[in-house]
Design a protein around this nucleic acid. Structure first.
Length: 202
DNA sequence: CTCACGATTAGA
DNA sequence: CTAATCGTGAGA
């Protein structure tokens, strides 16, 4: 294997009680691990976005809006926020910061590391570079759905293993697909690993 | 109850 | 470039 999980420490709950911008940067290079009794899937986190909550008009929690769908954002960090979009895809976020501060980190792309055959089956394609290079592509590969909503990202089934990358390899840019926002749409809250070929296009 | 639409993707 | 596709949320 080109990588190993042994020796890596799991990101602990405390790590996720910080602001979205810090967490979004710090998990770049980390491994997202999803285990169940039949398989283990691992992907390197190569692209994220920070959503700042009440003051961020691109955020689902702008101005403190609460709905049945997004209420998990108001809980203490280290929870998973998934939602259905366009009637067929699931987006995956990690709720961060303290209770009642609805910030989140959106995971936009991974580099596939383990469980590639299962990913290929689920995506119905073999091309490696298309398995996980988009927010609703990697969630298909990993089988993310509504049942993940509200789960802990600090568990034995799904967690993040610390690996990180050098600061000099991180690029910041404006977020994708948030043109509906006016105030904050151009803020540099999208982070990705420079030159990584699994970063989503556009 | 009605209805417009989305933190996207695949395909022409 | 556009269609797909349906749960969600705002409004009547």
């Amino acid at each position: 294997m080109a990588f190993k999980l042994t020796g890596l420490r799991k990101r602990a709950k405390k790590f996720f009680l910080r602001n979205a911008k810090s967490v979004a940067r710090d998990i770049l290079g980390d491994y997202l691990v999803l285990k169940n009794k039949n398989h283990t899937l691992v992907g390197k986190i190569v692209e994220t976005e920070a959503y700042l909550g009440k003051d961020d008009d691109a955020s689902h929690s702008f101005r403190g809006k609460v709905t049945p769908r997004n209420k998990i954002l108001y809980s203490e960090g280290a929870k998973i926020y998934t939602y259905l979009i366009y009637g067929k895809f699931y987006c995956f976020n990690i709720v961060v910061s303290k209770k009642d501060d609805p910030q989140a980190v959106f995971i936009r792309a991974l580099e596939p590391l383990e469980g590639i055959e299962l990913m290929q089956r689920r995506r119905k394609m073999s091309a490696l570079h298309k398995l996980t290079n988009g927010p609703c592509r990697w969630t298909q590969s990993f089988g993310i759905n509504k049942s993940f909503l509200g789960k802990s990202i600090v568990s034995k089934d799904i967690f993040i293993a610390a690996k990180s990358v050098k600061n000099s390899k991180i690029t910041a840019a404006k977020r994708v697909g948030v043109d509906y926002a006016t105030q904050s749409k151009n803020l540099p809250l999208r982070f990705y690993i420079k030159d990584n070929s699994f970063v989503s296009r556009r």
